[in-house]
Simulated assay, not measured.
Amino acid sequence: MHTILCYGDSNTFGTNPGGGRWGIDQRWTGLLGSMLGGSYRIIEEGLGGRTTVFDDPLEPRKNGLEYLPVSLQSHRPLDLVILSLGTNDCKSLNGANERIIAKGLEKLAIMVKTHAYGPGYPIPQVLVISPIHIGDDIESSVFASFDRGSAALSKRLANPIRNMAEQQHILFFDAATVATSSPIDQLHMDQEGHASLAKALYSLILPIFGDTEKPQIPAEYAKEASRAKFFGFLKR
């Protein structure tokens, strides 16, 4: 069995822009698990407000760097860790730019690769996901820490995160190529966005493990699958 840890923020948690949380069969992690089948195990580690490396005075205990080693240790053995963060780094109070946010993700990726898993445990591969874009009307939402600059910053994240992934020889995917934030709250994916992201990741993940007995992805999703880019694998 291949174990995949999905470590992210509210869009990994499955926050519904209309309120509450999308069901397990609606959010991308649950959909991905269903598509991959019984030989894969998906572990959800999504937390609303989670950043890469920043402490938020308005939302304490959301620093992703602090909890990641606990998560890596408690869910061993892991074959793949998906890091889906960056949206909350765009908050105006952090004062970060796109290069800093990419460095934050890099720090988490290096932690995954160098964590002391213990004898007999594999070093998991890493996939970083550049987040969806924050809506331009974010200042009309209830999320006071985001402004128009946050929305603009979110649109500049993909290239530096892609470059970082290439330098670190880890996998990369740009979620903004298949999904958008809902106009309801300008921050979270609707049900269609979750489905599109799951389908794209499905086609990216299967080749990682050389899965020959795989479910067939419908032909209409081939275009989405072709957008999945990756830049190499970790040496075992």
Rank of each mutant, 00 (worst) to 15 (best):
A109S: 14
A152Y: 09
P183V: 08
A200S: 11
A144T: 14
P57M: 07
D79V: 09
I161L: 09
C6G: 01
P57R: 07
A175T: 00
P60E: 10
G48E: 06
E44I: 12
P69V: 12
A222I: 05
D190S: 03
R41F: 07
V178A: 08
F172G: 07
L201A: 07
K107Q: 11
P160W: 06
H133V: 00
T180G: 00
D137C: 08
D136E: 14
N63K: 14
R61D: 15
E139A: 15
I4D: 04
T180P: 00
D190Y: 02
A151M: 05
S182Q: 03
I134Y: 09
A198K: 01
I123K: 14
I82Y: 04
K229Q: 12
V126N: 02
G14W: 13
R99C: 03
A198Y: 04
K113C: 11
S182A: 10
L197M: 07
D211V: 15
G232H: 02
A228C: 11
Q26I: 04
F233L: 14
P77R: 10
T87H: 04
G8L: 12
L206G: 00
P17W: 09
G23M: 09
A102D: 02
M164T: 13
A158P: 01
G37S: 06
H115Y: 15
I110D: 08
I101N: 01
A219I: 11
E44F: 06
I134E: 03
H169T: 12
I100E: 11
E44H: 06
P77F: 07
P124R: 06
D9A: 14
S141G: 05
S74R: 14
Q216A: 14
N163D: 14
L127C: 11
L31Y: 02
A179Y: 10
S226Y: 00
C90T: 07
K199E: 10
P183W: 06
S154K: 05
I161F: 09
D190A: 10
I123Y: 04
Y202P: 00
K214I: 12
K223R: 05
L197E: 00
L58V: 13
T87G: 01
K223Y: 08
P60N: 11
D9M: 12
F143R: 01
Q186P: 00
A195D: 02
P77M: 08
S92G: 04
E166T: 03
G135Q: 03
F231G: 02
R76H: 06
G210I: 07
A179G: 03
H2M: 13
S141M: 08
I170M: 08
R27H: 15
G30C: 10
L68K: 10
S71F: 12
Q73A: 10
D9R: 04
L65D: 04
Q186E: 12
F143K: 01
L32P: 11
R156Q: 12
L206Q: 13
K91S: 06
F230W: 13
R99H: 09
D25W: 05
S34I: 00
